[in-house]
Amino acid sequence: MNARQGFEGELSVLKSLVLEMGTKAAYALNESVEALVTQDIDRALKVIDNDYKINRMDIEINEKAIWLIAKQQPVASDLRRLVTSIKIATDLERVGDLAVNIAKSTIRIGQKELFKPLKDIPLMAEKAAGMLTQVMAAFNEEDVNNALKTAELDNEIDELYGRLVKELLEYIARNPEVTSQVTQLSFICRDLERVGDHTTNISESVVFMVKGQQYDLNA
């Protein structure tokens, strides 16, 4: 008989919560960018209204993990799983907030015609959301290689970000009348770049959870 069956059950419930939170954060991110692309204010408002659900899950995961630490006095990989859950929940909560930022910028841009069709921002969003999905799969399968591979993708987002912001600033210099719209779009680029960084943090957490070693993948 496994003397830790009850504890293992609780660990697996906690893991499901983290996975569910990851799905919610990825959904919020997709929705915020979709709202931007379609200039759909209602859709953007929904992202803002629903953010409390992600925040609530962060609290729930923290409380559950802290109680399990107190109750079960975990060590080694069990302890790492619990600490990692808390850390990943913090990163996912921030991803939710960044989706809210994107939604707010979308509302500020409003339904005024965009100065040019959006191409690179949706591409950047797709990459960021893809990274998030991939790293949550790595967490689910405790797959260190996949976590490390995911972190590498952040380079592409960083490159896109650098190029886009430069382009947008140059555009302002030439067309000062669209300053406000372009500023909001640069904010969105920054938010998406930050999603990449939080996802990379999650990669680090997964590696720590499995191997017990601290890696700095955001360097």
Partner: peptide
């Protein structure tokens, strides 16, 4: 840049 330097 990914640094796989083990800080631990």
């Amino acid at each position: 840049m990914i640094s796989t330097t083990n800080k631990n």
